[in-house]
């Protein structure tokens, strides 16, 4: 006999052996807390979205003695509409997650929601990197007595070293942050990705 047919026969026989939960027991369950992955993703995303906004609104000023040009500040505020766009997209994607969709669509929607936040964080990281690189550059020049003085004394070598150090530090910062992020989501979404790949593989 076919293996599955044998299993099917037993499967039907087992029907009467399952536990029978009472009305009250099930009622209680409907009021218990969900531990679904979507809930986790939602909370983590909220924290990330919030942190990004706080970072954009509260421009940290490390040293008050340095006067930054207004255009630099303007760029800082310019990012707020971009962040809001991401948040709206996140909300829309999140709303589209429904347990009554088919398996493939459900996983796809969850991953899409996650991806929006990923791009949001990436945008924040890169922007913070560039922004702080410019800020450090300006601060350094001011600290060494203003642009003219720096220009007089500095040669190509000094310029090159300064730019290199700033770029390296920014890149390192972004790489470490993104690496940690990647690791965290690699673990959290491992099962989802695996199942989605399995379904996608079938469609080739």
């Amino acid at each position: 006999m076919d293996e599955l047919e044998l299993l099917k026969k037993d499967w039907k026989n087992a029907e009467k052996h399952y536990p029978s939960l009472s009305h009250d027991e099930i009622y209680k369950m409907t009021h218990s807390k969900s531990s679904s992955i979507v809930k986790w993703i939602f909370y983590i995303s909220l924290i990330e979205l919030g942190l990004g906004l706080i970072l954009a609104l509260v421009n940290p000023r490390i040293d008050n003695e340095i006067i930054y040009p207004t255009w630099l500040e303007a760029i800082g505020y310019f990012t707020i509409p971009v962040l809001i766009y991401f948040i709206v997209m996140f909300y829309k994607n999140y709303k589209s997650i429904s347990a009554t969709d088919n398996v493939r669509k459900l996983i796809k929607n969850i991953l899409k929601t996650r991806k929006t936040v990923k791009y949001y964080v990436l945008f924040n990281l890169i922007f913070t990197g560039i922004f702080s690189a410019i800020a450090v550059f300006i601060a350094y020049i001011q600290a060494s007595g203003g642009y003219e003085k720096f220009n007089e004394t500095a040669h190509f070598k000094e310029y090159a070293i300064l730019v290199l150090v700033i770029v390296l530090f920014s890149a390192l910062f972004i790489a470490i942050a993104y690496g940690l992020y990647y690791l965290l989501y690699g673990i959290l979404l491992k099962r989802l990705n695996r199942n989605y790949d399995e379904l996608k593989k079938l469609e080739v």
Partner: peptide, 11 residues
């Protein structure tokens, strides 16, 4: 919904 929960949502 049952399968969706088992495959996707359940941690």
């Amino acid at each position: 919904v049952g399968l969706n929960t088992a495959i996707t949502l359940y941690r």
